Deep mutational scan, measured.
Amino acid sequence: MSRESDVEAQQSHGSSACSQPHGSVTQSQGSSSQSQGISSSSTSTMPNSSQSSHSSSGTLSSLETVSTQELYSIPEDQEPEDQEPEEPTPAPWARLWALQDGFANLECVNDNYWFGRDKSCEYCFDEPLLKRTDKYRTYSKKHFRIFREVGPKNSYIAYIEDHSGNGTFVNTELVGKGKRRPLNNNSEIALSLSRNKVFVFFDLTVDDQSVYPKALRDEYIMSKTLGSGACGEVKLAFERKTCKKVAIKIISKRKFAIGSAREADPALNVETEIEILKKLNHPCIIKIKNFFDAEDYYIVLELMEGGELFDKVVGNKRLKEATCKLYFYQMLLAVQYLHENGIIHRDLKPENVLLSSQEEDCLIKITDFGHSKILGETSLMRTLCGTPTYLAPEVLVSVGTAGYNRAVDCWSLGVILFICLSGYPPFSEHRTQVSLKDQITSGKYNFIPEVWAEVSEKALDLVKKLLVVDPKARFTTEEALRHPWLQDEDMKRKFQDLLSEENESTALPQVL
């Protein structure tokens, strides 16, 4: 008996699950189920560990084997000379395990699969056993689809999209007709009724959600790893209520002995410091949205989908001078704002400069500016000194954290500008005749005249004003913003236009 009217009423009120309206889709043409990776026989039982391990490696599972009696060998002398080797079968990115008779397991190899009674669906509900069930008529011709799209860092995100009359449910929550939600590992998919569980979705590319604290899981769906560094790992996640993407940084307390840091400095109150950081608001710094204190720290951040500045300059790639100017102007505005709010970044580098898009002209935002507030000064500097390429001379020669101030950030900005303009770092371990530390503390950077011949004198002058060993003589952010190279009204107008595109209400910060 159909429950279409009941569920449609529920759909009209929406769902609290991570779902959002989605535009129309072009329906895929039908194809045989076997060619799409559906096993030839149905099963109602969950797999054992041996079955799972075989399939996850990209080899055929026991459900897909063919009797050897149906095959015969071709003698080598009868092999056609022009026969080309077969292409290897792509490894599946996800697996659906059937929970009921009449449904088959599915190895997801393609990027898009339609499910329903219509014969054009890649996964067609046409098993005779299924057709005899009382629920068969409640399934729509095109009930739902599972697909994946390219996300940040060229990774993939799996989604389920509801197109049914009676509802598609993920972990008992209604997706909603015309809406989608991301699928995470071990999600249970039910059709027409929330208790009519048909599939379990296994994402073969992500970790299980159960490793994360419950308070975090209640608000966010964790997904793929976006990156990792000395101070922690960053994962893509989704807000459950809105389906908006965020980035979540995970900082290990054990790695940084944060408990010991608190004992050594009783004034170090991470929760208080995070609340201060959350109040920071500038178009060129990453917004801190939320914070969870569990076995590790979880910092929920605004997501930038254009990648890191590092990706644009790695491998001796240089940027156009006009692009360097647009990016560097924004970096200076961001660091100036942090300094005005009493925050020294201490870890400025291309990896911590994020881009809003893949376009050459785009907004940038500074991230990882609050680590000293979370990890403690000593722990952070011990970590950073392991990779000193961007560290100021006074940091390398000081004991502990004494003896330096916000000028350290201006040195790091000078190193970043040098790399963007030239395509190579000013200080490098590859210069074996002088140690990296000695290069930095003496201010002897690697200047290649033929490379810098293409760079304007004004740009080079600003680099020199920032890479000054004496912090008292080094340019401040205010002085850098007043430098002739940055007195470019076309560049500032472009920045204002980019801000307006992102948010019509965002105004250009005042600069002296």
Rank of each mutant, 00 (worst) to 15 (best):
S2M: 07
D6Q: 14
D6R: 02
D6V: 07
Q11K: 14
Q11C: 14
H13C: 15
H13W: 10
S15W: 13
S15T: 06
S16P: 11
A17V: 08
A17P: 10
H22A: 08
V25R: 12
T26Q: 06
T26H: 07
T26I: 06
Q27E: 11
Q27H: 09
S28E: 13
S28V: 11
S31A: 12
S31F: 10
S32K: 07
S32F: 13
S33L: 09
Q34P: 11
Q36A: 12
Q36N: 04
G37S: 10
I38H: 11
I38T: 13
S39F: 13
S40C: 11
S40L: 06
S41M: 07
S42V: 09
S44M: 10
M46P: 10
M46G: 07
P47L: 12
N48P: 09
N48K: 10
N48R: 09
S50C: 04
Q51L: 04
Q51Y: 14
Q51S: 07
S52M: 10
S53M: 09
H54N: 06
H54G: 12
S55R: 09
S55G: 13
S61K: 02
L63S: 07
V66A: 12
S67E: 05
T68W: 13
Q69C: 01
E70F: 05
Y72K: 11
Y72W: 15
Y72F: 11
S73V: 12
I74W: 06
I74S: 12
E76I: 06
E76A: 14
E81K: 13
E81V: 09
D82N: 12
D82L: 13
Q83F: 02
Q83D: 03
Q83A: 07
E84G: 12
E84K: 07
P85Q: 13
E86S: 04
T89K: 08
A91G: 07
A91D: 06
A94L: 02
A94F: 11
W97C: 08
W97V: 10
A98Q: 11
Q100M: 15
G102H: 14
G102V: 14
F103T: 04
F103R: 04
F103A: 06
A104I: 13
N105I: 13
E107M: 15
E107K: 15
C108D: 01
C108I: 02
V109K: 12
N112E: 04
N112P: 04
F115N: 00
F115E: 01
D118P: 00
S120G: 09
S120P: 14
C121E: 03
E122F: 14
Y123F: 14
L129V: 10
L130I: 04
L130K: 00
L130S: 04
T133D: 15
T133G: 06
K135R: 08
K135S: 07
Y136K: 03
Y139V: 01
Y139I: 01
S140N: 04
S140H: 02
S140Q: 01
K141M: 04
H143V: 02
R148V: 13
G151M: 00
K153S: 02
Y159A: 00
I160P: 01
E161P: 05
D162R: 02
D162E: 13
D162Q: 05
S164V: 07
G165L: 15
N166L: 03
N166F: 06
G167S: 00
T168Q: 02
T168P: 03
T172D: 03
T172W: 06
L174R: 06
L174V: 10
V175S: 11
G178K: 02
R180C: 15
P182N: 09
P182Y: 15
N184H: 14
N184C: 09
S187F: 09
A190T: 09
L191Y: 02
L191P: 03
R195P: 03
N196W: 11
V198G: 11
F199K: 03
V200R: 12
F202S: 08
D203Y: 15
D203T: 02
T205G: 04
V206L: 15
Q209E: 12
V211L: 03
Y212Q: 00
P213N: 06
P213G: 05
P213D: 02
R217Y: 02
D218F: 07
D218H: 12
E219C: 04
E219V: 12
E219S: 07
E219I: 12
M222W: 05
M222E: 00
S223P: 02
S223G: 14
K224S: 02
K224R: 03
L226W: 11
G227R: 01
G227E: 15
C231K: 03
C231Q: 13
G232T: 02
G232Y: 00
G232N: 02
K235T: 08
K235A: 03
E239V: 08
R240E: 05
R240H: 15
T242N: 01
T242L: 07
K244L: 14
A247P: 00
I248G: 01
I248Y: 01
I248V: 07
K249C: 01
I250K: 13
I251W: 03
I251R: 08
I251M: 10
I258D: 02
I258C: 11
S260A: 00
S260Y: 05
S260K: 13
S260D: 09
A261C: 03
A261N: 00
A261G: 00
E263V: 14
E263Y: 09
E263K: 14
D265P: 13
A267V: 10
L268R: 13
L268H: 15
N269I: 08
V270F: 05
E271N: 15
E271F: 06
T272R: 14
T272D: 03
